[in-house]
Write a protein that binds this DNA or RNA. Structure first.
Length: 302
DNA sequence: ATGGGGGCCTGCCGGC
DNA sequence: TGCCGGCAGGCCCCCA
């Protein structure tokens, strides 16, 4: 068992967990505890978010994309990325008591208490019903942005390839994208412009399921391997989302931290273990490609 | 255009 | 026991 980094299934799990708590709610206060994460927060970020209503909480690749309606009724989008260690921590509103009247400027007593005691909380939000949403990110590889206009024109989203679980991702598309690509299939699948949402872990797992060596050049995949690879990618992601979904049942608690559910992997992080495939006694190997670990079974993957 | 590598950033872990 | 190097990797950016 190990905790998965935020790739598509983890981000989707976060989305599903948070959406029912924040959709349709107005942001009463938003506090930044530092001027930047990986990038500086956009100018007027807090001011624009404050008083805005979160209309819909969606996902694109590994990005969370919230449709917002500001105080004047204008639409904009709040984009966030969890990076490597980013987490949203949700605290549902405590039950109000009769004497819980506004203190200053309409702030209720129950809103003054710190919802969580944790290091590395960089953003705090309070919604109109008292729901707290904090963003913590020790390594600050995550970031947030504000998008005016069509979200697909955001520089962060413009170059993304198809969603791996959508109809735009299929064997013909993947085969065409692989034409002439001399890079190993491992690197190829990590390229978010090829298919958007895979990270190191699920690429390793998908290649294992498809029986393809991470070393194989993308251009040499061929129709047969692509025909195995596409469903392998879909299956591994869909199963991981299911596994994440099963953790949501316990979500609405005090420490509502999200996105790092436990999950079993066949090869990732298992160097030296015997391959889990039936009748295979080879050892799972680790190799470094472009500075990243690949795990694979040299017997099952060619 | 494409591929490869550096840098960001902190927590953790193994070795001495 | 404490220190320290290596490692983890998503994504942008630069260079060949």
């Amino acid at each position: 068992m190990m905790a998965a980094m935020p790739e598509l299934p983890e981000v989707e799990t976060v989305r599903r967990g948070l959406a029912p708590h924040i959709e349709g709610r107005r942001i009463k206060r938003l506090t930044l505890h530092r001027p930047d994460l990986r990038f500086p927060f956009p100018k007027d970020f807090a001011a624009h978010m404050q008083g805005a209503t979160l209309v819909q909480f969606a996902r694109r690749a590994k990005y969370l994309l919230a449709e917002m309606q500001d105080k004047k009724g204008a639409r904009f989008y709040w984009l966030s990325h969890l990076g490597m260690t980013g987490r949203f921590i949700l605290t549902p509103p405590p039950r109000k008591t009769p004497d819980d009247t506004p203190r200053t400027a309409g702030v209720y007593a129950h809103e003054l208490a710190a919802p969580v005691a944790e290091k590395h909380i960089h953003v705090d939000m309070v919604f109109d019903d008292g729901t707290h949403l904090a963003f913590a990110d020790p390594r600050r590889f995550g970031f947030m942005d504000k998008i005016e206009g069509a979200p697909e024109r955001s520089p962060f989203l413009a170059r993304l390839g198809p969603e791996p679980l959508g109809n735009d991702f299929n064997q013909a598309v993947l085969l065409a994208a692989a034409q002439g690509r001399q890079t190993p299939v491992k690197n190829f699948l990590l390229d978010q412009s090829v298919v958007a949402g895979l990270g190191n872990i699920y690429v390793c797992e998908a290649l294992f399921i498809a029986g393809i060596s991470p070393r194989r050049k993308a251009a040499n995949l061929g129709v047969k391997r692509v025909a195995r690879l596409v469903p392998a990618i879909r299956d591994v992601l869909a199963r991981a989302i299911e596994a994440g979904g099963s953790t949501l049942r316990d979500f609405a608690h005090e420490d509502g931290a999200m996105g790092y559910f436990q999950h079993d992997f066949k090869v990732y992080g298992r160097a030296g273990d015997i391959c889990s495939a039936p009748h295979c006694s080879a050892k799972v190997m680790r190799l470094v490609q472009s500075g990243r670990s690949s795990f694979y079974c040299p017997n099952c993957q060619r």
